[in-house]
Design a binder for these strands. Structure first.
Length: 479
RNA sequence: GGCGCUAUCGUCUAACGGUUAGGACGGAGCCCUCUCAAGGCUUAAAUACGGGUUCGAUUCCCGUUAGCGCUACCA
């Protein structure tokens, strides 16, 4: 039975690298009919926060992929302790009574590899038991088999054969001096207990895997399959981090900007993985059917964001492709929270802005003039058409005011009326449309004029054109 | 410092010894067009460096350089 797990620790919001790890785990499980386990790795009591935990669930829920089982490490401490004791009983761990070192002392040992605190490995079991019973604090360390050293090897699903000598592995901690389990112990004990068959995680754990293999061996369980994912890095090449890069790496930032979860997932999949053909936009089903470790790249992938633009242009482009392909009713539903207008209005506006937004949030600025009662102030010079003057603008608008009351507000009738009016005035169609567009929308760049006018309605259009005429007249007299 | 991983256009990537080194995003240009978009077409842009192996290396090996990761009683 194939079982995978995603194990975030609630020390900050869910970041996009973690989200990708989750997605790849999910895809792999769905592809092979396996089980997805969400395990909250909250053994670091100092740094865990409820806000972070909520943010992780916010992000995960938004992705809408779901999972099958859920656990919390802090509720499984007895299991971790038991694992630690069993390792100690087997003689594969020892108590280290050395007091915790300060940061400065840590620095002083730089220059050579630290492997263990000399002497502590050799303390007799009797003395060790006695001192522990007397209440002396200790760190429980793995007794890494050295002298003779031997190679630990495994085959990574992505990186291939991996070898490391035990001579290069330090006696890492299993239990802290307060008795709490470290990440390595808790993670392995849980992976063993939950019968995780495939561990798919970030490449930052590649070298930790040797330690984990030692723990699994001591626990006496079969090794799972390991597959490590290349890291997501910032444009400066450093690992994405909440501290250095801020909210741009948070999944909820993407949600709030109006990414569609499908597009976001699609984008993340393309970072460090390739279907090996030229497909870019892929549905959830296609991703499940295509995903495999063979397609995963070995080198880190840059998420291309800047201070001015927090989102990778490719993510934005993919999102736009999903928006363009979406049925109007569905898109209108997604747009509603961003537009804060009545559903009927949103539905009418949606087809006009669908191809003009890349993020749902863009709708706000693209569709504003549809939704406000009063247009924000604009420069009357905008009303002047190409190769024309304010007199021409005035003639056009006044003419529009004459003919529009008797025109039915639909595409065909408006086009017919305005084109023939242009002919009668001796101006080009564009010169006719431009002043009206600005009068009605308050700016030069807007959706197609006739549909726009139809949605706005006759009354509002006439009102706005009248206002434009007044603007022009006051500027003319002022000059 | 030690150990490990990685290295193709600005970015994401394809080419698992033989290609004019392909695609996508972004850029530039053209077309379409009532503006803006969308769409179509065209274009610039890469094998980090140095040695091998081979008839032939982006591809295999070694070295250099660079980046990243681990080296915690963080995860």
């Amino acid at each position: 039975m194939l079982r995978v797990r995603f194990a975030p620790s609630p020390t900050g919001f869910l970041h996009i690298g973690s989200a990708r790890t989750f997605i790849f785990n999910w895809l792999y499980a769905r592809r092979h009919g396996g089980t997805v386990i969400l395990r909250i790795d909250d053994t670091d009591i100092e740094r865990n926060t409820q806000v972070a935990l909520d943010s992780i669930f916010d992000g995960l829920n938004w992705l809408d992929l779901g999972w099958d089982e859920q656990y919390r490490q802090s509720e499984r401490l007895a299991l971790h302790k038991e694992a630690a004791e069993s390792i100690l009983r087997k003689g594969r761990a020892y108590r280290d009574f050395t007091p915790a070192q300060s940061a400065e002392e840590e620095k002083s040992r730089e220059g050579g590899p630290w492997l263990c605190n000399a002497g502590m490995r050799e303390i007799s079991r009797e003395e060790s038991d006695r001192r522990a019973a007397a209440g002396e604090p200790f760190v429980l360390r793995y007794r890494v088999p050295r002298e003779p050293a031997h190679d630990i090897r495994f085959r990574d699903g992505v990186y291939g054969e991996q070898v490391k000598s035990t001579a290069d592995i330090e006696d890492f901690a299993l239990l802290r001096s307060d008795g709490s389990p470290t990440y390595h112990l808790a993670s392995c004990a849980d992976d063993a207990d939950l019968r995780i068959s495939h561990i798919i995680r970030g490449q930052d754990h590649l070298t930790n895997t040797f330690k984990h293999i030692l723990i699994f061996e001591a626990l006496g369980i079969d090794l799972p399959v390991f597959a490590h994912l290349p890291l997501l890095v910032a444009p400066d090449g450093t690992k994405l981090s909440k501290r250095r890069h801020g909210p741009v790496v948070s999944v909820t930032t993407y949600r709030d900007a109006g990414f569609l979860p499908e597009a976001f997932i699609n984008f993340l999949c393309l970072l460090g993985w390739s279907p090996k053909d030229d497909r870019e936009k892929m549905s959830r089903e296609e991703l499940i059917a295509t995903f495999s470790f063979e397609g995963i790249n070995k080198s880190n992938a840059v998420v291309n964001f800047t201070e001015e633009d927090p989102f990778d242009p490719k993510a934005v482009w993919l999102n736009s492709q999903y928006i363009y392909a979406m049925p109007v009713e569905e898109l209108a539903g997604k747009l509603a929270p961003f537009l804060r207008a009545e559903p009927r209005k949103v539905l009418a506006v949606t087809p006009l802005i669908q191809e003009r937004i890349k993020l749902l949030k863009d709708a706000e600025s693209v569709a504003d003039f549809f939704l406000v009662a009063q247009l924000p102030p604009y420069d009357p010079a905008e009303l002047i058409p190409q190769k024309g003057d304010s007199a021409m603008a005035l003639r056009v608008l006044e003419r529009a005011l004459e003919i529009l009351p008797s025109v039915e507000f639909n595409h065909a009738a408006l086009e017919e009326a305005l084109r023939s009016a242009a002919g009668a005035l001796g101006v080009k169609a564009g010169q006719m449309f431009q002043p009206i567009r600005v009068a009605v929308c308050g700016r030069k760049n807007a959706p197609p004029l006739f549909e726009t006018m139809a949605v706005l309605g006759k009354e509002l259009c006439l009102q706005r054109i009248e206002q434009a005429v007044q603007k022009l007249q006051t500027t003319v007299t002022a000059n």
